[in-house]
Nucleic acid binder design. Sequence first.
RNA 1: GCGCCCAUAGCUCAGCUGGAUAGAGCAUCGGCCUUCUAAGCCGAGGGUCAGAGGUUCGAGUCCUCUUGGGCGCGCCA
Length: 585
Amino acid sequence: MAPSAPSAPPTHANPCAAEIAAAVAAVVGARPEDVKIDQPPNRALGDFAVPAFPLLKAAGGGAPPALAARIAAELPRGGLIVDATATGPFVNVKVDRVRAIAMAIDAAVGRAPLVPDQGQGAVVCVDYSSPNISKHLAYHHIRSTMLGHALVEIFTALGYRVVRINHLGDWGTTHGMLLAAYQRWGAEYPTIDVTALNALYVRYRAAMKEEPGLDAEARAWFKRLEDGDADARARWQQFRDTSLAEFRKVYDLLGVAFDDERGESFYEDKMPEILELLAGKGLLEESEGAQVVKIPGDKTPLLIKTGDGTTLYATRDLAAALYRQRTYGFARSLYVVDRGQGLHFKQLFTCLGMLGFDWASRCQHVPFGLVRFGGKKTSTRGAVGGSGGGQFLLTDVIAEAVDEVRPRIAEKNPDMAPAELEAIAHAVGVGAVVFANVVPQRDRDVDFDMEKVTSLSGDSGPYLQYTLARCWNIERKAGELVDGPADWTLLSHDAEWAVARKLLEFGEHVARAAVNCEPHVVAHYLLDLAGEFSRWYTQGNDDATLRVICDDLPTRRARLALVHAVKRTLTRGLTMLGLAEVTRM
RNA sequence: GCGCCCAUAGCUCAGCUGGAUAGAGCAUCGGCCUUCUAAGCCGAGGGUCAGAGGUUCGAGUCCUCUUGGGCGCGCCA
């Protein structure tokens, strides 16, 4: 039996919360997963809060404050729990910080799975980036690419086996246009690179408005391609190879890679089966000359074949979904594609269900909002470049961000070797751009603003990288790396506890990010963690005894271990989001 | 016209699937560099959570309606 897909966050991925929940559950006779663990609004109240309301049924009724009082009285002390007080309907629990800190550091440094009992090798397919060949990767492609990449990393960290799929748009009438355009004007372009291909495409589309015949010409070319015409195939292959080579460069820049880059053309010979399946179920109908599947409740049907007899993307998506299920046996199959295609995916999955595939329910569209420029929607069909509302190339935006960042790093590190400066500028520049795209909720539109995207202060990628660099710097200055046990009783300051407590939360945020396919959960967690660390760090400015590198050696060792735990967690989280580790900046 | 999504501080956004006094960043103002990196930290001001009903012990969060915006609706993907 295939492992089931996660549908709810695991209960209490935070090891401290898990222990408290178990203890509370034992007192009231509830299941641990029914015990909600919150944070008190005020740190003085306690470390964890347990609302009594959800436990009323298990406890046999009564008034919430009374139940809270009973729980507070009966909770066993002496282990992790050192104190519990009822405040109205809430039980506020104080934990043994020394124990909790040990748990936090173990979890951050140890090899234990991020969240126990997650993943277990179940397969998650993630379809992301998926650009069209013969076009540049424009800035807006970053959204699908980096959200998808983050989901890949998040599921991998939770113990899933992830298949990274780049479903290239390399098939369809669009590519007939390119072949037609190439035949007409190809000789005018000395080098057929992606810029030339893009220009040919734009030119053809413009010409189509003037000459009605061009539409048919493009269709005819795609028909030739689909029928296996040798010239068409060779030319198309050239366009595809050229595009892939350029994509590879950009993906390398971003640190993104794929396991499956087959693209739509791969499914060409798999479509007859889909047509047979549809016909066999009596789902295929003719409508206005085309072959369609009517979707109950929808005004428009799913188009399977054009009047010309060529296939459409829906047909290929059906074939691809089936192929993925057969090949990978996925527990979950995700499509990280912009929100505008919501109807398409809804119909696609409904159609799979109509075909009798129970795994249709494990397919999920992971939509995201638009990337706008100055409030305007970006067009994949407009001209490239410029600030006039057209497109920005992804590589141009990254290059500009790197240029922005380089002098500031140089200023702070006058002795840095040029090669290292360049590497760090690259990591920070890319980090700024990438972070700006994963920190908002997926479904929010993001308006492109170079100034904001490359901003280094506040809630930004560079802030996280800077915090990480400070961790590295401490370890370098201390001359030792402490990743083993130390005397945790020496970490007695509130600021140290605040850091440790935040470390404990890492797993639950990653798990929640996976359930909701929302990488921004991890992004905000990292900002919180970096904030707690910075607060702790800054206290050393006023008082040398509060610094990590303090005179008391046992204290220093304990603090170094905490720094190391933060460093590990930040590195892990940054990597998850597609930001590079930075050891100095 | 039909469908989906959104509305939280001046701006950009969080708010852990219904919990206690709604939080950050930017911007503004005021503090902290003989300091393990000031790309940082602390403080102040700033809110009718678009509006109106409803559901219940409890609603920014759930249901309905209204307003305002966005996106999508047959042979592109």
